[in-house]
Nucleic acid binder design. Sequence first.
DNA 1: TCTGGGGTCCTAGGACCC
DNA 2: TCTGGGGTCCTAGGACCC
Length: 420
Amino acid sequence: METSATILHADLDAFYASVEQLLDPSLRGKPIAVGGGVVLAASYEARAFGVRGGMPGRKARELCPQLIFVGGHFGDYQRLGDAAIKVLDDFTPLVERISIDEAFADVAGCTHLFGPPAEIAAIVRRRVRAELGLPISIGVARTKHLAKIASQVAKPDGLVVVDPAGELAFLHDLPVSLMWGVGPATKARLAEIGVETIGQLAKTHSGALERLIGPAAGQKLAALAWNRDPRRLETHRRAHSAGAHSAGAQSALGRKPAVADVFVPTLLHLADRVASRLRAKDRPGRTVTVRVRFADLRAVSRSITLDQAISATAMLAETAEELVRGVLAAHPGEKVISLLAISVSHLEESAELQLELPLGLADERRRPGSKRGLARFGADRAVDKIRQRFGKQAVGYGAVALEAARSVPDEFRELAEKEL
DNA sequence: TCTGGGGTCCTAGGACCC
DNA sequence: TCTGGGGTCCTAGGACCC
């Protein structure tokens, strides 16, 4: 067992908003939000008014009338995020990046070169500030969980080192919501039994905890509350998404009538997004899931597992359409839909001969592939090739139908699906 | 004017097989 | 004939993370 605190968790502060303030000095010191319909990131000046990420733009403006909305410079986010992680790479190869703006690093093997972990963390912060112009907070601790919590406590623009001798004293006064795995629902359930701090969670009877939030989550949280975190750094996690288990796309629609004229073109567009990614990765999938959200934001899903994996746009679109018709038939009272989603899972490793060849006459539904399927495979390949040469916008499905509904720029979608 | 989009993991019930 | 148990797969839903 490690006895010294050598794990760093580095987290750029209010990342998208900080980049915008870096690019446009007139925005510095002012409350700004990246996004429009929904706030993707808020500067600390905006947070002082209660503006938060994920919040509807309208509500943010209510809270902060002088709030400035800025369009996202998504290429710059990627570039500056990469550059910040590279600073960590200068100290150790043991870097685990977990998102565009966040990474763990274990500096145990390089303290003889650069000094103690706290000093390394201070240098990283100075360099990111000096070379990139961005604030970054760092937590240093003996475990990943503790380092991550420490960086949250350090924000904004701070450094917190958790001495191994004082771990539980540090941890137990903090609110449970800082823990990995505690979101709004779990926080509320814990509050029902009077548990608000990590220390109170640690003292909760394990049986009661597991009944409250389930055995898996209960055991995990109990372990973390007692600072037992066995996770090691994963340096090469999910390279190129090779190990991905699913791929999906969704589109919020505002309020649209639940009729074929709306959902057919939308599903075609979504199927195209998903299927072209599956083809690009040579990862066809067997299970197709659709999600339909109604006017009151209640969502219903339907899925089907096919005998054969698919990656053809038309096949996916038709399967999804059937599932959506099933959802709507089961909810005849719902006349309005607010979101549609398609996801494909049970992805297969190899695309070897996944041409969706004709299998015979039986059960077309569970056995995708037919003469039509074969012809369409050729069409998909042609579309993929044109996009390779001329860009994604060169060929599209259902673009007109979706234009009005698009509240998030495609660049952000690209960013979200980008493998790190 | 009721909230984006990409994922992961867990749970629970039912079908089916041994 | 009746009863029980375990394992696996499928489906639907929920919670969480960035």
